[in-house]
Nucleic acid binder design. Structure first.
Lengths: 188, 188
DNA sequence: GTCTATACCTGGATAGAC
DNA sequence: GTCTATCCAGGTATAGAC
C-alpha cells in the first residue's frame, strides 16, 4: 500500500513543478491542481510557500544522497563512479533538454531572487562536489581532488545550460564522450 | 552632450535589472524607480513588458556583436581571439559571481517560463557560437569547429553557474587556466 | 483534514488630465 | 511626453464552516 500523506504529495508535486516552471513561475493553484486539493488546504500543512520550498530541498538532498550511495555500490572503482556522474546528463537528457539541471536552475533562480533558501539549495551541488572530491582522492589525486571535482561539476552544468537552450541531444553525447576521455587521461 | 531618450533610458535600466533580478523578478515599479519616471509613462513607449524585453535583447545582440568585432580587431590570430572569449569570465568575474552569465541566466529563465522571446534570447549564445566556430575554422579545424565552439561555450556557462552559486573567485581563475592550456594543445 | 469564501497585496495595463 | 488615478488579474495568506 503506497500510503502517501497529503503533505508528502504536496512536496512531491512542488518538487516536480518547481523544476519544470521554476519556483516563482509556479503558483499554489498549480500545485493544488496536481495534488487535487484546494488552495486553502495548503495552510494546514505549511505556513508559507517558502516552507514548501524548504521541504522540497530536503527531499532533493535525501534523493541525491541515495543516488550517490547507489553509484558507490554499483561501481567498485572510483573512476567508474565518476563516470556515473558524468553520464547523468545522458541518462536524464530528455528532462535536461526541457528543464535544465534541477539543482543548477534552482540555485540560479534563488540567487537572483536573493532568496533565504539559496544556500540550502546550494547544498545539493555541494553534495556532488564533496562526493566527487572523495572519488578523486581515491584515484590518488591528493592535492587537486576538489579542483577536479569542481571541473566535472562545471562541465555538467555547462552542458545542462546549453542543452536546455538549444535542445541539442547530440551535443550532450559528444561532450560526455570528451569528458570520459579526459577522465581516462586523468586516472592513467 | 549625452542625450538619451526616455525610451533608451528605460531599456538601459531594464537591461541591468533583468540581469540582476531576472525578468520576472523585476517589476515596472523597479524600473520606474531607476529611470525616475512614473509607471504610467511606460505605456507611452512600450505596449507591454514583453516589448521592453524584446528591445533589451536587441541591445544585447548589438553589444555582443561589437564585443566580437573588438576581439577580432585586438587579436590578429584566432587562438588569441578565442582566449579573449575564455577570459571573459575573469574580466566580468564580480558581476558573474553576483548575477551569473547575462545570456545564460536569461535563456534559462525564459525557457522555464516558455516565454515567446526565448529563441530571441538564445541568439546571443548563437552569436558567440558561430563566432567561435569561425575562429576554430581559421585554426584549421574543419570538421569539428562547431563542436569545439560548443565545448568552449559550455565551459563558460558551467563556470558562470558555479561561480554564481558558490561565489568562488579562485575557482574561476583555475578553470580559465585549465581551458587556456587546453586551447594550447588544440592549436598545436 | 479539507473545504469555501474572502481579504489583501502586487504587478501589469488603461484612461484621461496636464 | 509625463503624470495621477484607477482597473483588473493573479497570487499569497487567513477565517471559519464542515
Amino acid at each position: 500500500m503506497n500510503e502517501m500523506t497529503t503533505k508528502e504529495r504536496i512536496v512531491e508535486a512542488a518538487d516536480r513543478l518547481f523544476y519544470e516552471r521554476g519556483y516563482e513561475g509556479c503558483s499554489f493553484a498549480d500545485i493544488a491542481n496536481v495534488v487535487g486539493i484546494s488552495r486553502g488546504n495548503f495552510y494546514y500543512h505549511f505556513k508559507t510557500k517558502d516552507e514548501i520550498l524548504e521541504d522540497v530541498i530536503l527531499v532533493r538532498l535525501t534523493n541525491t544522497e541515495q543516488l550517490l550511495e547507489m553509484w558507490e555500490a554499483q561501481g567498485s572503482r572510483p573512476d567508474a563512479r565518476i563516470q556515473s556522474f558524468i553520464r547523468i546528463v545522458v541518462t536524464n537528457q530528455s528532462k535536461i533538454m526541457r528543464y535544465g539541471c534541477p539543482a543548477g536552475t534552482l540555485c540560479t533562480e534563488l540567487a537572483k531572487l536573493d532568496h533565504i533558501s539559496q544556500y540550502e539549495a546550494n547544498k545539493v551541488l555541494t553534495l556532488f562536489r564533496t562526493w566527487l572530491c572523495q572519488q578523486f582522492k581515491l584515484l590518488g589525486r591528493k592535492d587537486d581532488a576538489d579542483e577536479l571535482a569542481m571541473h566535472v561539476l562545471a562541465f555538467s552544468q555547462g552542458i545542462a545550460v546549453l542543452a536546455h537552450a538549444f535542445h541539442d541531444k547530440q551535443f550532450i553525447e559528444k561532450e560526455v564522450d570528451r569528458m570520459c576521455k579526459w577522465l581516462e587521461e586523468i586516472k592513467g
